[in-house]
Simulated assay, not measured.
Amino acid sequence: MPCHSRRTLLPLLLAGLPAPALHAQARPVVVASFSILGDLVRQVAGDAVALRVLAGPETDAHVFQPRPSEAEAIRGAALVVRNGLGFEPWLDRLLRSTGFAGPVTTATDGIQPLRAAPMPGHSHGADAPDPHAWQDVRLAQSYARRIAAGLAGAAPQAGAAVRAGAEACLDRLGALDAWVRGQFASVPEGRRVLVTSHDAFGYFAAAYGVRVLAPQGMGGQAQPSAQQVAALIRRIREDRITAVFLEGPGSQAVMERLARDAGVVPRGRLYADTLSLPDGPAPGYEAMVRHNVGLMVPAMLG
């Protein structure tokens, strides 16, 4: 690309024409609320946008506290992508406080939410919708379509790249869904039971014929009662459940104690609400699903 001096650039800027060097660098800023959603945006948009993820890897998006830098990112965004269904109430407050008037894509629009039985102290409220729809890979395809539609309106100059990215993403997710189903086909129905710390796998359970037992509610912040833990320990012993997992740093002490009292060994850590760091086992959405299922199936077979 030829160099352009300030004297050459000035007439172009004054004329309202894009300066070649500046135009090449200009990419619309897209803000995603948390790491899993950010990876889906990245898969669809590729390098066509400048992506900013607010609650990054290994961050609990339920209780994320935005900093001033997150507010600045919102103010400069061409598009904000959120999960919805009450998953990130802090983002709604952030949008109001910044006066953001740009487009907002809600990835769960059009999805019929599940509703979990209320548990004392869980963060989403009584009879609230379960926001963890991405755990069903087919619904992650719906996320990708919503993201592509939002990008088409907010970044029309990236239309061709977004369409190609969306098609490739949908193909990969379709193959991933088929792989998950094939993996669980090897597990007898009565063994498709797992125990993890909080109730984030409802859509996964409904999609793939798995029963999930958890001592905590959908938000995962409230400590379970002694009665809840004791009931779960009895269930693990009576049903000889071997698929017991940690999930998230904040839950490890509870689950380690529960597993010890039930006489079982935790079979690793699942990722539900966040991705791992880039050098971890779940740096992207597809890697997360494959990691989780790769732990679940051998543990269920016992």
Rank of each mutant, 00 (worst) to 15 (best):
Ala15Lys: 07
Gly38Gln: 04
Asn83Val: 07
Ala214Ser: 12
Ala55Val: 06
Pro68Met: 07
Val229Asn: 06
Asp273Met: 01
Val81Ala: 02
Pro28Gly: 10
Pro103Asp: 08
Thr274Arg: 08
Asp171Cys: 15
Pro28Leu: 04
Phe34Tyr: 10
Pro129Phe: 06
Ser33Leu: 02
Asp273Tyr: 03
Ala272Tyr: 03
Ala48Asn: 01
Val180Phe: 08
Ala178Arg: 14
Ala166Trp: 05
Gln227Tyr: 12
Ser69Gly: 11
Gly102Thr: 00
Ala230Lys: 06
Ala61Asn: 06
Ala148Asp: 01
Arg52Thr: 13
Leu17Gln: 11
Val265Gly: 09
His62Gly: 03
Leu94Gln: 02
Ala287Asp: 12
Ala24Ser: 13
Arg257Thr: 15
Gly56Pro: 02
Leu258Phe: 05
Val29Cys: 12
Thr274Pro: 04
Val254Thr: 14
Trp134Phe: 06
Val265Ser: 13
Pro2Trp: 04
Ala272His: 05
Thr108His: 05
Ala282His: 04
Leu173Cys: 10
Leu14Arg: 15
Ala140Gly: 07
Val244Lys: 01
Gln216Trp: 09
Arg172Glu: 12
Arg181Phe: 08
Leu91Gly: 00
Pro66Asn: 10
Ala140Phe: 00
Gly110Arg: 11
Arg172Thr: 07
Ala144Gln: 06
Pro298Ala: 01
Pro129Cys: 14
Tyr208Gly: 00
Ser33Lys: 00
Gln25Ala: 15
Gly248Val: 12
Val180His: 04
Pro283Val: 10
Arg96Asp: 14
Asp199Ser: 14
Ile233Ala: 07
Gly76Ile: 02
Gln252His: 14
Pro281Gly: 11
Gly165Ser: 09
Arg93Val: 09
Ala116Pro: 01
